[in-house]
Nucleic acid binder design. Structure first.
Lengths: 221, 221
DNA sequence: TCTCTAATGTACGAACTAGTACGTTAGTGA
DNA sequence: TCACTAACGTACTAGTTCGTACATTAGAGA
């Protein structure tokens, strides 16, 4: 998330459209993630900014479009991370494990993103649906998974009946749930899924699970 | 969810505290699930009821407590279902698979519950924390898992290093994500995880995954 | 140096929203 | 049948909250 932190010139206002816009997005991201769409207050977002509410409407048009812009930027970050994925030189098993770890790490490092996605799901993805940008950008991770999967299946290492989207769902669900449901799970079962000393445990567990699934002999059950 | 649907006596108001309360809870469940906590409108809830807003405050005290009551009832439903779980006569592999299926089915049948839990997580489980009822009722499912796991590990069928809470998290994460993130996942990857014709596929996939994980030879990777 | 516009600030309003003061009545128990 | 209370309805308010009309200015280009 491109943060904004230039020391403003001593006094008198400075004009910098890009900075103002980015600062609004930064603050809005935190506010929406904290309070949900309806719970977030436009006035509050403005107050935490060096500019005024007027600018939110000037640049984004309204609360709804602001949220869409926040989502767009949040998704662009994860796509960037996926694009930097470099696992194709590894053997299939190591590659999948690495991919799972990178996904795991990204979810852990971006709890605000998780919350935004949860919120967007409450709203049935209407902002994604309305967004030009978000509509037409398939996940780079998916292509990577597809290639690893093919390679693993060709060599007979992986069972044949697995599809890239499904595997992505499997990996994401664990990573996502661990962060998104941390609070209710913790309150009900007394275990903090995001506790630092359990991090390695769950990271390994995810990898073990995915590899076990991919290499299992389905006849065995 | 105990629905209310008695044909009101022709005209003249009827007094029935239990019915009124239950009706408010029914409507509030839908409203909160649809719009989130902040997005839900007390007036709207009242309007969809045969009674008035006054009664919401009379019986529940306020919006916050109403949401807590909604959550309490929603959780009681899943606990009931878990209590009816009868798998201990099966062998460990079949028992775990059955447990996974029951969890899968319950999530699918109660999307409103999933949404409420998502919403409660946005609010960092503050209502659960504040609730007497919800605090002290460990999941019956957890005990069942514990017993199956022990049995499976004793017989050498399952790998030893698995814990009941972790397994519950693994199963829940897949079931939960499939419903909770249905919309964003569908919008971004073009696959409806809850499409009826994929139901059996994902139900089997979950079972395969869990069993593969439990029976895998960890040295293999 | 002058002009013109993108960028910015202030002040306000209309609509909404949680919550309540006050009054009414059904129906139960004496 | 009478009194009393739990259950209910109406009308209102105080405070928010999104959005905008109007005024101003920094600074790029002529």
């Amino acid at each position: 998330m491109t943060s904004v932190e230039e020391p403003a010139r001593p006094n008198g206002r400075i004009r910098d459209a890009a900075r103002t816009k980015a600062e609004i997005l930064d603050v809005a991201t935190k506010e929406f993630a904290r309070s949900g769409f309806a719970g977030a207050r436009v006035d509050e977002i403005a107050a935490r900014t060096r500019t005024t509410k007027r600018m939110i409407y000037y640049y984004f048009g309204g609360k709804e479009q602001l949220f869409t812009a926040v989502l767009e930027r949040a998704y662009s970050v994860i796509r960037q991370a996926e694009q930097e994925l470099d696992v194709e030189h590894l053997d299939p098993v190591a590659a999948i494990r690495r991919l799972a770890e990178v996904t795991f790490d990204h979810h852990e490092r971006h709890p605000d993103f998780i919350r935004l996605v949860s919120i967007e799901n409450i709203h049935e993805a209407e902002h994604i649906a309305a967004s030009e940008k978000l509509g037409r950008i398939g996940s780079p991770a998916l292509d990577v998974i597809r290639r690893i999967l093919e390679s693993g299946q060709r060599s007979g290492l992986f069972t044949a009946d697995v599809d890239a989207v499904d595997l992505h769902a499997m990996i994401s669900s664990f990573c996502f749930f661990r962060v998104s449901n941390r609070h209710t799970f913790g309150a009900l079962f007394g275990r903090d899924l995001v506790a630092p000393d359990l991090r390695e445990h769950y990271r390994k567990m995810l990898g073990d699970m995915v590899i076990a699934y991919l290499t299992a002999d389905r006849a065995a059950d």
